[in-house]
């Protein structure tokens, strides 16, 4: 009974309500906020985080975490641009190579977690330093240019609209992710794994295989994110997206996924990402200082979880 009520009036509600409030407040405080061109342009900054958040939702629902995604993103970028500029790889091949390399790096995480039975928090804490370190060995502190023909994807729009290509891509991927998570056997297995790993194993679910697949998925997402980021910034650097993993995890948890696993929705994650984006954009255009923005996002995270905890307990009793 408790779980049914909790899932129906789940924490997603908190994110939705906050999103509406934040949007209204920003528009009220600062009229310059309500400018579609600006909002969609500003949203290009959140697309990479959005794609990482989709895969992170799966990982967290399975009761795990991947701190190394942003390091994979940086390493994939470093490897691809090195291959193009030093070894003459055709630029178009990057579109294929990036997700494959990302997937391979993610699989390494997955194998360490499933075969060595190591906690994912610790494994990805180590590979977070390792992967970014290898990117630094490849590039040093210098940057390598993204091939010209692949630069500027965030400037390409659907004709007659402000919808840019990364936004369309994120939307499509989000719909696919939601389908896989909520409608397929694999999605149910992932949830089962996070609810009770032991029980899942006894029920004959191939938990080891699923773990490897999950972290591979996370790596593939980082590969795609890398393409988007490099296309947007025009250069690859070893320190790209450093610290972004915290924003990604914040979005997933804010979106109502349980960090202990077992529950969460793609819709919640995307809503929360929108919330973070709207709050930061609203504060940015109102001239709020960076450090206050950091504090507000932290507060938001705690308040939303506290709130859903309290309502869940009240309803449960």
């Amino acid at each position: 009974m408790i779980t049914r009520i909790r899932s129906r009036f789940g924490p997603e509600i908190v994110a939705i309500v906050l999103l509406i409030l934040a949007f209204g407040f920003s528009a009220f405080r600062e009229p310059r906020f309500l400018d579609a061109e600006y909002l969609f342009d500003r949203s290009t900054l959140y697309m990479e985080a959005g794609i990482l958040a989709l895969s992170m939702t799966f990982v967290i629902i399975a009761g795990h975490i991947d701190l190394s995604v942003t390091s994979i993103l940086a390493l994939v970028g470093a490897m691809c641009t090195t291959l193009v500029s030093k070894y003459g790889m055709p630029p178009a091949a990057m579109i294929l190579v990036a997700p494959v390399v990302g997937g391979a790096l993610g699989a390494l995480n997955g194998l360490l977690v499933s075969k060595e039975k190591l906690p994912s928090l610790v494994v990805t804490l180590a590979t977070m330093a390792l992967f970014r370190g290898v990117a630094q060995i490849l590039l040093g502190d210098h940057s390598l240019p993204m091939p010209k023909e692949l630069v500027g994807i965030h400037k390409m729009q659907l004709p007659g609209t402000y919808f840019h290509v990364p936004l369309v891509l994120l939307t499509v991927l989000a719909v696919i992710a939601a389908f896989v998570l909520h409608r397929t056997v694999w999605g149910r297995w992932v949830t089962a794994l996070g609810t009770n790993a032991e029980a899942a194993r006894h029920a004959g679910i191939p938990t080891g295989k699923i773990l490897v697949q999950l972290f591979t998925l996370s790596g593939i997402a980082a590969g795609i994110g890398s393409l988007l980021m490099l296309s947007r910034l025009g250069v690859a650097r070893f320190d790209h997206a450093r610290g972004l993993e915290l924003d990604v995890i914040t979005a997933v948890v804010l979106g109502g996924a349980s960090i202990f696993g077992g529950r969460g929705t793609i819709f919640g994650t995307i809503t929360a990402l929108g919330l973070v984006g709207v709050v930061q954009t609203g504060m940015g255009v109102a001239g709020v200082k960076a450090e206050v923005q950091v504090a507000v996002i932290g507060l938001l995270l705690i308040v939303s979880v506290l709130f859903s905890n309290i309502t869940a307990r009240k309803r449960g009793r």
Binding site: R32, D35, A36, E37, Y162, I270
Partner: peptide
């Protein structure tokens, strides 16, 4: 329910994404 809500939310934002017929960026006040 979530799928519907997602669709509704998307429908609500979608018009925002369309460029105004007039000059680019004319909607901004600042």
């Amino acid at each position: 329910i979530f799928a519907l809500a997602a669709l509704a939310a998307f429908g609500a934002i979608a018009p925002l994404g369309c460029k105004p017929a007039g000059k680019d960026g004319a909607s901004g006040s600042g």
